[in-house]
Simulated scan of single mutants.
Amino acid sequence: MDFLTLPERTSGNRTYGLTSVIDFGTPIGELKNILSDYGYLIDIAKIGIGSAYVTRNIEEKIELYKQYQIKPYCGGTLFEKCFYQNKIPEYLTYLRNLGIEWIEISNGTLDIPLQERLQLIRQIKQDFHVIAEVGSKDTNKEIPISEWKEEINLLFHAGCAYVITEGRDSGTSGIYDKSGSINSNLIQELLKDLDSKKIIFEAPTPMQQMYFINEVGTNVNLGNVKLQDVLVLETQRYGLRSETFYLEEDGCKLL
């Protein structure tokens, strides 16, 4: 029975308002239980770091996600490992064999020149939906705001479906400082000139998630969400938590 006035939430096969979870080796039995209850709240599942490569039942896990219309893909670290060892053709074959249609192109660990990443995106965008990541996992590396904007624009122009802003699973790098505090100046500048519907902000903690919900709106794209936190996140999106209680009635500055 619906009797509350709540922010309007995107639904179905969403193109924005995405919840992207991170899976660091969730056992199949546990995953089945989680998805049975909360699969409808999840849009994308990142098989974290390079864990897909050493998961024996990875085929079963991929199929399980797809049963719930969740888009699975492998973390950028696996891509970077393949790039480092000159195994990108083998990696693409590996993804095709698994039935994975999404790929992350990142440079969080390796300093892969932007032009090389752009060229690769142009080559594979016909076969895969590309998600690119911007920002470094190195907490001591500062990237000027102008470079963030320029790189994101070039990645979109090359054919990326979405761009992720680096935050790590710990929320302590990229758009955050070592303590987990958000670089709000950077976020404000990105929101001024870029289409936030196509940016996935990595926000692993409830505090970080609530910042983006209040700043961008109910239907902000959030990544690196823990599987056990998806219901709490949806509650936050609907203004049913104190910190998001006073969301605008339309629920989303994106609309």
Rank of each mutant, 00 (worst) to 15 (best):
P89V: 11
Q188E: 04
E104F: 09
L114K: 12
E30G: 00
Y162F: 06
L4H: 03
D111G: 08
A52S: 12
T244V: 07
V163S: 03
I103W: 08
E60D: 15
S242V: 12
I152F: 03
T93C: 12
A52W: 09
G108Q: 08
E101M: 01
T205S: 00
Y162M: 03
E101T: 10
P204G: 05
S242A: 12
G135K: 12
Q115L: 01
T15P: 08
W148K: 10
L194N: 15
T5R: 02
F3K: 02
N57M: 01
L78Q: 07
Y40C: 02
Y68S: 00
E8W: 10
Y176R: 03
H129N: 03
E249H: 03
I28W: 01
Q126R: 09
E249L: 06
T109K: 04
E59M: 04
V54W: 05
E248D: 14
L247D: 04
P144R: 06
D23E: 02
Y91F: 15
G76F: 13
N224V: 15
A52K: 06
R122S: 13
D138S: 11
K141G: 11
A158M: 04
Q67G: 06
I88L: 15
Y211V: 08
L194G: 13
T10V: 14
D195V: 06
A158F: 09
E90F: 08
G17R: 15
T55K: 06
I22Q: 04
H157W: 04
A52V: 07
D37C: 01
K81D: 11
G17M: 15
T55F: 01
F24W: 10
L78S: 09
Y65I: 07
E151M: 14
G223M: 04
R56Y: 15
E90S: 10
L233N: 03
Y40V: 02
S181G: 05
Y68C: 00
L231G: 00
I164A: 05
E248H: 11
L222Y: 13
I182L: 01
G108R: 13
Y162L: 04
M207R: 02
T93N: 14
Q228R: 01
I42S: 03
G99P: 02
D37W: 01
K61V: 11
